[in-house]
Amino acid sequence: MPNSPSLIVDHLSIRYPGSGSNEAALHDVSLRIDADNLVVALGPSGCGKTSLLNAIAGFVTPTFGRITLGDRDIDGPGAERGVVFQDDALLPWLNVLDNVAFGLKLRGAPKHEREARARAVLAQVDLAGFEQHRVWELSGGMRQRVGLARALAADPQVLLMDEPFGALDAFTREQMQELLLRLWQQTGKRVLLITHDIEEAVFLATDLVLMSPRPGRIVERLSLHFGRRYAAGEPARSIKSDPQFIETREHVLRRVFANRSVSAGS
C-alpha cells in the first residue's frame, strides 16, 4: 500500500494515576504495525492489552514513550484509527444503515454518498438487507459485524479491535474470524487485534505478540502465516488440523503458561 505509513509504538509505558500498586500497566512496549499486517496481542487479563490499544486509539495518554502514525505523533482519538469494541457500542436510536454511516455523517458527507458507502460496507460484512433494522434487535454476532462495518466505512488506516469476538459463542466467533480475514484481504487494512483466545490468535495473526502481566510487557513475538493461508483460499478446517498449526498453538499455550500459572481462559 503506497499511502500507508507505519504505526510505531516506541518504548511505551503506562502507569495509571492513583492506582494503588507501583506496577506499571504497561512497561516498555515497542511494536510496529506495517502495511498489510494483522498483529494480534495475546495474553491473560490484566497484562495491559486494552491499555496498549487505548493508547494507540488515543483514549489514554502514555506515561513514557511515543506512538506515531507515519510522521504524526498520536495525541488523541482520530478517524484514521478505527476502533471496534467488545461491547458493540452502537447507537440504538439509529438504524443499522445510519450507524454504519455515522462516521461519514460526522465528516459532513452528503446523505446519498454516505448511504451508498454504508450499503457497500454492509454487503461486505454479509449484512445486505439489514439496513433498516433496529440494532438492538440483532444478535450479538450481527451487532459486532455492524460495529466492524461502522469502523470500516470511515476508511481508517488502522483497525484496532479489543477482544471483538470475546462475547460471542464459539460457532459465531469462528465465522467472525473468517469474515475478518476476508475483509483484511479485500481492504488491505492493517489490523491490531487483542484477544485472550489462543487458537484465535494463532489462526489470525501475521505477527503474534505474547504479553505477560505485572508489569504488562511483551515476552515473545512470532511471525505466522495461517491467516494468510486462509485469505489465499485454503479452508479453515484444513489449516486448523494442519500439524504445524497444532504445534504452534501448543507452543503458544506452553509459553502463556510458562509466564504465569494462568487460570484457565481468563
Partner: peptide, 11 residues
C-alpha cells in the same frame, strides 16, 4: 465506549 467510538470516528 459509545463516546470513544464516536471520538475515533472523528467527532
Amino acid at each position: 465506549s459509545r463516546v470513544r467510538a464516536a471520538q475515533s470516528l472523528g467527532a
